[in-house]
Simulated scan of single mutants.
Amino acid sequence: MQPDVYLLILGDHLPDPRTGRTVSQRDRLHAMCAQAVVAEESGFTGVAIGEHHFTRYIVSAPELMLATIAARTSTLRLSTGVTLLPHRDPVRVAEELATLDVLCDGRAELVVARGVSPATDEAFGIQHDDLRPRFDEYLRLLLQLLTETNVTWHGWFRTPLENVTTTPRPIQVPHPPVWIGSGSAISSDLAAELGMPLMLPSTLRSPDAYVDVVTRYRDRLSAPGRVALPSHVYVAPDNARDRWRPYLSAYAAFADPLRGDGQPVDVDRLMNGSAVCGDPHEVADRLNALQSLLGLDAHLVLIDVGGLPPDDVLAAIRLFGEQVIPKLTA
């Protein structure tokens, strides 16, 4: 049995470090949609698209991207990666997820998380001390709205609901898969309590950092759960490290304040830890080792980083699908 494999797209909008050229935002967004189409052709299970605001990650409305991809694909699972739930109205999230699920004939998924940017919290008027309880409250309401009709609800962070049924209703029963995205013990405990799958963070930290969290999550589950890990990945027939190094370096310098471990960026350390790079055999072996370490049910593969040229991204997606996915084990 093989694990599920999703193409993760966070949408950083950085110049190519070799040429200094930056593509337009229009071309960047269209390129992401094209990547998803090629991922389906290459045997990926799904695509997951991140949400960010006010940064050089330029996807702020992943659901719209996913709806565009839905019209161009037929089998690909369509997920956010992640939805910043504390910054959203859970009623609207339920409506948008169900609408996507209907339009794509039951292929929609959702990953919810608190987010990693204090500046975004501030811009949306969210106090830091409210972030975790707001996430907890909104998640429980979201699940109720997706599974029940005629919902009456009272909470702390939004106005009450009286006899509300969101429309449309999702195709998937009881609802489209909803993952919790987090690497913290508190959020993994919430995932276990609610019987939800756990998506680990797309960080630049060593995967070893999540062993205790995953163990804790599984120990607290009352039924089998699912765990997924994002990995920065580049695969090429030869010289993969040399080809990828300037792009990974550029991305790490940009992303480290949000996703790093507080240590100076060391690209060689990244390539031996959270970044998987090499020929197809080496990449498959590294991902299988991560599966053994964490008992993964799914991999999220983040290829498009640091201004990597679109043709190189598509070539890596195709090679990964052709020669890596068949070697992955669960």
Rank of each mutant, 00 (worst) to 15 (best):
L8I: 09
C33D: 13
L8E: 03
A94Y: 08
Y57W: 14
F54V: 01
P90S: 10
V82E: 05
P86F: 09
P15K: 09
T83D: 13
T73F: 12
G46C: 04
R88K: 11
L76Q: 07
L64S: 12
M1R: 12
L84N: 08
R26C: 01
E40M: 01
G11I: 00
T55N: 01
R92E: 14
M65H: 13
T80W: 05
H87Y: 15
T68H: 13
V23H: 03
R88M: 15
L76K: 11
T19Y: 08
V93T: 09
A34T: 06
H87R: 10
L64P: 07
T45C: 05
S79D: 07
S60W: 02
A39I: 05
E96L: 15
L84R: 10
D4C: 08
L14C: 07
A70K: 12
G11R: 01
L97H: 01
H30K: 13
M65N: 09
S42L: 04
T45E: 06
D12L: 04
T45P: 02
R77M: 12
V38W: 00
V23P: 00
I69W: 03
D27L: 12
R28Y: 01
P3D: 09
E63L: 07
V37S: 08
G46V: 01
L7G: 01
A61E: 13
V38F: 04
S74K: 11
G43K: 03
I49V: 15
S60P: 03
V38D: 03
T68C: 14
A71P: 11
I69K: 04
I58V: 15
Q2K: 14
P3V: 08
T75G: 13
A94G: 11
A36L: 04
R26G: 04
P90M: 07
R92T: 02
T68K: 09
L97I: 00
A36D: 04
A94T: 13
L10A: 05
P3A: 11
